[in-house]
Design a protein around this nucleic acid. Structure first.
Length: 596
RNA sequence: GGAGUGGUAGCUCAAUUGGUUAGAGUACUAGCCUGUCACGCUAGGGGUUGCGGGUUCAAGUCCCGUCCAUUCCGCCA
């Protein structure tokens, strides 16, 4: 007989009755009746009830087994009496009567509970992550993650993509997020950087002629955490394809991601092809570039109407280049005054000067703005915004970008407060036609708004003739339920257009040669048109597991301050290690540490 | 770097207007219990109320500072 087990704790059924079996696992629950003892033995596969009788010499030892101790038992499978069958567990028709007991590992009292639903403080959960991972929910999340990654690999391979590995120690890239740096021992004063994404490598693989690349790629960015953004590292399904248009990339991703969600989602999933929304439209209708389409509210621009109105605050704002955005909401006319007051307060809290509104009651149109608008203007608003009796419209007025953002936040706030978010659905969309450049207010210059390697729409001619701020890029995002799942682009593979694109952003050709020398040289030696995308694996698992925090789908996440509380990272290193790396710690830092 | 929320037993939480010895569940220890399945029952141990200062006859409770956690903003090509 195997020293540890003949079966797992999830597999014994009525058909095994009479068999002598050996099981190993954790003491999950314990029910001590004095004259006999039940233990629910748990392993990865399930739970089996085992029974100890007092005449056994190890009975006393068994009654003192603490929770989460690891034991091996040998015994006979017996059928339970009909009245004691537990229909809630797959193994509930049988139990194992223990003839031999080996304690493999006695557990000390636990710092967090494995059983039960109550959540412990997150710093404790992270310190004892191996215990936390035994809890049913987290255990299932990690299993789901594995299944998702496995499915992605299969789908990509079946679609003709090849999986590659790219370097983890590479060079710092000048654009983008803060890098994680690794000091070089052999080259004093020089550093490797961990890749923020394998961006240049995957493009170089296209230049190398491999045609279709993918990788479940680790990406490292030294930026502050959010609920949906784990600090340190995260994983992308990194994709790149040669000789493709934007439509080809969309079709490939819709196959893989659409199929993945169909396979794993417990909710309704949009059918492919996914809706496409231009960046400009998205900013107007939803107030951001990652719209949650489960919310049935569309923002409207009503600047012209107010320009012709008698409401001076809006009228003069529009005359000064501002805009007025309307947020129509159905069926709130009978809400109490406090509902409207709270929204005004919310709007002010996020930086709006105010929040005007109109309410259509059966008798009249109420609200602070009503007296400034003529009946025909009210009628026009009603038509433009698609409202009727019983509905309301909220208005924000500001500069274009600010108004869009405010209206977007208010749209989401209203939807959540009124429970308007469509439940149990994954709503996908593509956001397309991102601007190539944006105005950098801080440095008073034109800057790349996304990826500097994107192909500008219109190519060289657009760069030569158009206002840079009006050039769009072949740059796109995939969005699901208000979560940015993925960002990608058709790349700029033509050196002349690359130099020109950087010139517009204020960089000379020497900068391109120095910073992106590897890639620009490659493009001079025969580069195929190519493009790609990189869906976030952690975020997809998060959506599929219905978790609001990304740490719930990562086995060993860091906390918000980018510390691993279990492994004590980042940690101190020896003087010798520092010497070898030619690194001196600032004495001020050392002094502060010794005080702390 | 900024803002909000929180911090009481190993864990989850309670404690009235500032007022007696800071309680309960769970875990832990000891005991009882012949069919439980979150078993039940009895008893016991377990507290610098995050830390420091202040107001007060009296502070878990009020004030100031600070630390920690978390959420958001900044940041994330």
């Amino acid at each position: 007989m195997h020293p540890y087990r003949t079966h797992t704790s999830g597999e014994l059924r009525k058909s095994h009755v009479g068999d002598v079996v050996r099981l190993s696992g954790w003491v999950f629950r314990r029910r001590d009746h004095g004259h006999f003892l039940f233990i629910d033995l748990r392993d990865h596969y399930g739970i089996t009830q085992i029974v100890f009788h007092p005449e056994r010499p190890f009975f006393d030892q068994a009654t003192h087994l603490r929770y989460e101790s690891v034991i091996t038992i040998t015994g006979k499978v017996i059928a339970r009496e009909p009245t004691t069958v537990n229909p809630n567990m797959p193994t509930g028709e049988i139990e194992v009567v223990v003839d031999e007991l080996t304690v493999q590992s006695m557990a000390e009292p636990l710092p967090i509970l494995v059983d039960g639903k109550e959540e412990s403080p997150e710093d404790l959960r992270l310190k004892y992550r191996f215990l936390d991972l035994r809890r049913d929910k987290l255990h299932k999340n990690i299993v789901l993650r594995q299944q998702v990654i496995s499915s992605l690999r299969r789908r990509m391979t079946e679609s003709g993509f090849m999986e590659f590995q790219t370097p983890i120690l590479t060079s710092s890239s000048p654009e983008g997020a803060r890098d994680y740096l690794v000091p070089s021992r052999i080259h004093p004063g020089r550093f490797y950087a961990l890749p923020q994404a394998p961006q240049q490598f995957k493009q170089l693989l296209m230049v190398a002629g491999f045609d279709r690349y993918f990788q479940i790629a680790p990406c490292f960015r030294d930026e502050d955490a959010r609920a949906d953004r784990s600090p340190g590292e995260f994983y992308q399904l990194d994709i790149e394809m040669s000789f493709v248009t934007q439509d080809d990339v969309f079709a490939a991703v819709e196959d893989v991601i659409g199929g993945l969600f169909q396979e794993f989602a417990k909710k309704k999933v949009d059918v492919t092809p996914f809706v496409r929304i231009t960046y400009a439209d998205s900013m107007l209708k939803y107030g951001n570039d990652k719209p949650d389409l489960r919310i049935p509210i569309e923002i409207r621009d009503v600047s012209q109407l107010f320009a012709a109105s008698e409401f001076q605050a809006f009228k003069s704002a529009v005359a000064g280049g501002g805009v007025v955005r309307a947020i129509p909401v159905k069926g709130v006319a009978d809400k109490p005054r406090s509902f409207f007051d709270k929204l005004v307060e919310f709007a002010q809290g996020i930086g709006s000067k105010g929040l005007a509104y109109l309410v259509w009651t059966p008798e009249t149109v109420k609200g602070p703005l009503a007296k400034f608008l003529k009946p025909e203007q009210l009628e026009e608003l009603k038509t433009q915004c698609g409202v009727g009796i019983g509905d309301a419209i909220f208005f924000v007025c500001d500069k274009k970008d600010a108004a869009a953002k405010l209206a977007g936040l208010i749209r989401v706030k209203i939807a959540k407060d009124l429970d308007l978010v469509e439940p149990d659905t994954f709503r996908f969309c593509w956001i397309v036609d991102f601007p190539m450049y944006e105005w950098d207010e801080e440095n008073k210059c034109i800057a790349f708004s996304h990826n500097p390697f994107s192909m500008p729409q219109g190519g060289m001619e657009a760069l030569m003739t158009k206002n840079p701020l009006e050039i769009n890029a072949f740059q796109y995002d995939l969005v699901c339920n208000g979560v940015e799942l993925s960002s990608g682009a058709i790349r700029n593979h033509i050196p002349e257009i690359m130099y020109k694109a950087f010139e517009v952003a204020g960089y000379g050709p020497e900068v391109v040669d120095r910073k992106f020398g590897g890639m620009i040289n490659a493009f001079k030696l025969g580069a195929p048109p190519h493009g790609g995308i990189a869906p976030g694996v952690d975020r997809m698992v998060m959506l599929l597991a219905d978790e609001s925090n990304i740490r719930e789908v990562i086995a060993f996440p860091m906390n918000q301050k980018a510390q691993d509380l279990m492994m004590n990272a980042p940690g101190e290193v020896s003087e010798k290690q520092l010497r070898e790396l030619h690194i001196h710690i600032d004495p001020k830092v050392l002094a502060a540490q010794s005080l702390g």
